[in-house]
């Protein structure tokens, strides 16, 4: 099994901690002048998303987590698993709801998502930063109100509900930033 020494620690490195994969957020070398050095490390547990702090004696080696990010296309959801396909190898994986976090509500099919695989199985799915989705339900648009800042809720074809400007009509395709969950613009058809 591959492992890393503390002097290889840097942001983004994936380690196995207490059996869970974790990603280094911050690594700080502390040393009492002369004397033993220690690494104070902030990590994100990739299963729970929780941030943890750990200290290591410098020179320690820690087992690496076999975690990789792969771009995969969303195929379908059978109610239990969300299926993704590698567009190059056509290999398919099924991600449980727990791996989807918020991503599920932004995808309807064929979007390229980042699938984080741990020992080959999906750990986390990240939706594309921007998606284009049609409005399936919203209150009627208010003509002429293009400058005012008012918003109303709109349901999108993927099921997500976002705040949109008052002039948006049902059937229109919108560009959404999935990181903030915010409306960006209309997409001209």
């Amino acid at each position: 099994m591959a492992s890393y020494s503390t002097n290889e620690f840097r942001g983004g490195l994936k380690l196995l901690l207490d059996g869970d994969p974790a990603s280094i957020i911050e690594n700080e070398l502390v040393k009492p002048g002369k004397g033993q050095a220690f690494n104070r490390v902030k990590l994100r547990n990739l299963k729970t998303g929780r941030v943890i702090e750990r200290t290591f004696k410098s020179g320690e080696t820690v087992e690496a987590a076999d975690v990789i990010d792969v771009e995969m296309e969303f195929s379908y959801n059978d109610g239990e698993f969300w299926y993704f396909m590698d567009p190059n190898t056509f290999e398919q994986v099924g991600a449980p709801d727990s791996a989807m976090v918020d991503s599920g509500k932004w995808i309807k099919g064929q979007e390229l998502c980042t699938v984080t695989l741990w020992d080959g199985s999906p750990l986390m799915v990240t939706a594309p930063n921007f998606v284009e989705l049609a409005v399936t339900e919203t209150d009627p648009g208010l003509k002429g109100d293009t400058a005012q800042g008012g918003t109303k809720p709109a349901t999108l074809e993927s099921g997500a509900v976002v705040k949109v400007p008052l002039f948006i009509e049902e059937g229109e395709v919108l560009k959404i930033d999935t990181r903030s969950g915010e409306y960006v613009s209309r997409v001209k058809s």
Binding site: P32, G35, F38, T55, F56, K57, G59, E60, V62
Partner: peptide, 16 residues
């Protein structure tokens, strides 16, 4: 207690 700490090493404890 840091991971990898040598629990019997007094100077390492003092450094920590």
């Amino acid at each position: 207690i840091p991971q990898g700490m040598n629990l019997d090493d007094k100077d390492m404890w003092l450094d920590w």
